[in-house]
Design a protein around this nucleic acid. Structure first.
Lengths: 213, 213, 213, 213
DNA sequence: GATGAATGAGCTTTCATTCAT
DNA sequence: AATGAATGAAAGCTCATTCAT
C-alpha cells in the first residue's frame, strides 16, 4: 500500500490547523505548480481530510491567495527587519540582499510560490505578487538614489536611470535566488556578495559619468 | 451560431500543418499557461481537428516539448546571427542583448513559453530551457572574459567572479524582458542600453580592482 | 464580518427547542426544497448547532418526516375545528374550504412542504401526504354525498361519481391554494367562493340529471 | 456485478443520441426528481458515457431545461392537434381534456417533469412551466367564454368569474392526471368524462344565475 | 444541554486521448 | 489527409453525519 499512514489527525485549534494547511499548500504548490497541485494532495500533505481544507480556506483560489499573501508578508518582514534604518545606504542594501537570499534559501517553496506560481496564474494572484515586488523595488530605488547622492559624483543620475538600475538589480537578484535553489555553491552570502560588488562598482562608475554608449 | 466561420482548412502538406499547430500552441500556452491550455483550444486555434493534432504531435507533452525546442532554437539563432564574430567583445555583447530583447518583444508568447512555462512544469521541459540558458550563459561569460582581458585592468577577475557576473547579467536581462511585455516604454533598445551601461561600467570597475566588501 | 449576530441562544427545554427546529426546517425546506435544504442552513435558521439538530431529530429524513407530520396534523386540525358537526352539509363544506385556504395562506411554507415537497421525494414522505389527503377526500366525499341526498334530485349519484367529484374538487382547491401564493388577489375568501359556487351549482345540475355525455 | 451490461454503445448521429439522452433524462428525473437524479444515472440510462452527455447538453441545468422544453412542446402540440378548430366549444374542450389526459397517461414521466419537477426547482424552469400553463389556461378560458355566450343564460359571467372557473378546471385536471398515475381505474377517458360532466353542468348552472352565496 | 472539529462519500464538470470512418 | 463520435480518469467542491469535549 502506498502512503496513507495518517492515523486520524488529532483535534487541534483552528488557527494551528490553518497554519498547517498553508504550510502544506506552499510545499505542494511550490513543487508541482498551482494547477498540478490537487486539493487531495494538499489535504493529505496537511494530514487532514479535504472537507476540512474547504471548511477553513473555502476554495483552491482562496487557499492560493492566502499562501501568496503569507509568503509576501514573510519576505517583506524579513527584509524590513534586517535593514537597519540608521545604517548608511550601502549597508542597508547589503543587509536587504542578504535577508532576501536567506529567505529564498530557507523557504525555497515559498519563494517559488511567490516568484513563479503567483506570476503565472492570472490577475488576482499576479497583482498580489506585483504589489510586493513594487514595494521592494521602491525600497531599492530609494537606497540607490541616496547612495548616488552621497557619492561625490561628477554627474547626477536621472530618476529614469535609477529606476532602470533598480529593475536590473532586483531582476538579477530574483534570477540568482531561483538559480541558487539548484546550485549548492550559491549560498546566500555568495549571492549577495556577487550582486553587491557588481552593483556598487557599477553605480560608482555611472556616477562618475561613465557610459558605454 | 456565433462565429466559427472556419472553413475547414483544406489539405495541406504535413510540414506546413505542423508549423500552424506549433504557432497555435505557443500562442495558447503562452497566454493561458501549459496546464490551462486545453488541446481543444489549441486544435481550434490551429484550425484543425483534435485527432489531427494527435496524429502529428502525439501528446500534449510532446507538443509542448516541440514548442519549447522550436522557440529555443529560434532565440539562439537570432542571437547568433546578430553577433558578428569579428566585432570587439563589447560590440558583440550589445548586439546580442539587442537581439535578445527584440526576440522577447516580437515573440512575446514564445518568450513566455520559454522563460515561464518551460521552467514551471517539471523535468522534461525545465531541462530543455536550462540547456538553452546554459548556452547563452556560456556565450556571455566568454564575452565578459575577453572584454575583461582586453581592458587594461590592475586585477584579473577569477572565473568564479566572471560566472557570477554573467549570471547576474542574464538574470537582469530576463527580468527586464519579462517586464517589458507590460511596459511599452521599455523598448528593446532602451532595455539593451540600460543593461549595457550598467554592465560595462560595472565590469570596468571590477577590473580596476574596486569591490564593495 | 456580515451579520451572524446570533447570541448563542441560551439553554431551553427540549420541547421548545424542537419546535424551533421544526419551524426552521419547514421554512427552509418550503423555500428551497428538501434536497437543496442543507442541515447547515436549517441549523443556522434554528439558531443552534448542527449536532443538536441531530441529537433531537436524528437524521434529515426523520426531520423531514416530523415536519410533514406536524403540518398534516395542523391542517387536519384546522379544518376539523372549523367544520361544525351540526351545520348543514353545504355550510360544512364552505367552512372547510375556508379553513383550508386560510391555512395555505398563513402557513405558505408548511403548505409547500405538504403539497409539493412531501409528494416529490419518495415513498416514506409521499405516503404520509397521501394519508392526510385521503382523510380530506373522505370528508369531502361524505359531505357531497349527504348534500346530494338532501337535494331533491331526479337521479341518485353513484359512489363512483361522487368520488370523482370529490377528487376534482380537492384537486381544484389544491391548485388554487398553490396559485394563491403568487397572486395577492386570490384571498382565502375569494378562492373559497369561486370553488363553492362552482361545486354547488355543478352538484345541483348533476343531481338534476344533467350530463354532458 | 450490478448492471453495466452496456456493451460500448454504437456510433450514432448526434441528433439521435441527443433524443436518447433526453428520453433517459426525462425518465430518471421524472422518477427520482431533479436533485436526486445524478448525471451518472442519466448517462447510464441513456447508454452512453457521462462526458458525452456534457458534450451535447452542456450542464445539468441545460439538460433539464431541454427536457422541460421538449415536454412542454409535446403536450401543447398534442392538445392543439386534438382540438378541431371548427368544432363547437364543448367538443373542443372535450377533445382537449382527452388529449391532455392521454399525454399524462402515456408519458407519465414527462408529465411529472413538467408538473412537479419544473415547478419545484427555481426560476429558470418554473418560468418555462408557467408559460406553458398560461397558454393552456388562456385556451380553456376562451373556450369557457364562448360556451357561456352560446348558452342561453339569464346572466352573463364576468371575466373574473370565467378565469376563476378556468383555473379551477385546469387545477382539477392536473390533480386528476397526477392521481391517475397511481390508480389504474382512472383511465384518460374516465378522467375526461368526470371533469367534462362537472364543468358543463357547473357552467350551465352559473349561466342560469345559480350561486351558492 | 450544547458545540467546535472532523470526515466518508458522492456530485458536477473537464480533459487528454482514442476509435471508426 | 482528416474528422465526428466517444470515453477513462480525475479534479473541485458539498453534504449528511459523527466524535470529543
Amino acid at each position: 500500500m502506498s502512503g496513507k499512514a495518517r492515523v486520524r489527525a488529532r483535534r487541534m485549534p483552528r488557527a494551528e490547523r490553518e497554519r498547517q494547511m498553508l504550510d502544506a499548500a506552499v510545499r505542494v504548490i511550490g513543487r508541482h505548480g498551482y494547477q498540478a497541485a490537487s486539493m487531495d494532495e494538499i489535504a493529505e500533505a496537511a494530514g487532514v481530510s479535504k472537507p476540512l481544507v474547504y471548511l477553513y480556506l473555502h476554495s483552491k483560489e482562496a487557499l492560493f491567495t492566502a499562501c501568496v499573501e503569507r509568503e509576501a508578508r514573510t519576505l517583506i518582514a524579513a527584509i524590513s527587519e534586517a535593514v537597519g534604518q540608521r545604517d548608511p545606504a550601502d549597508g542597508q542594501l547589503w543587509s536587504g540582499l542578504l535577508a532576501f537570499f536567506r529567505y529564498a534559501d530557507e523557504r525555497a517553496d515559498g519563494w517559488r510560490v511567490l516568484h513563479v506560481q503567483a506570476r503565472t496564474h492570472g490577475e488576482p494572484f499576479a497583482r498580489l505578487a506585483d504589489t510586493m515586488r513594487a514595494r521592494v523595488l521602491g525600497f531599492v530605488t530609494a537606497l540607490l538614489t541616496s547612495a548616488a547622492r552621497a557619492a561625490d559624483g561628477t554627474r547626477d543620475l536621472g530618476e529614469h536611470e535609477l529606476t532602470g538600475l533598480a529593475h536590473a538589480l532586483v531582476g538579477a537578484a530574483e534570477s540568482l535566488a531561483t538559480r541558487a535553489a539548484d546550485d549548492p555553491a550559491l549560498t546566500p552570502t555568495a549571492s549577495a556578495r556577487t550582486l553587491m560588488d557588481f552593483a556598487w562598482t557599477g553605480l560608482g562608475g555611472l556616477v562618475a559619468g561613465e557610459r558605454w554608449s
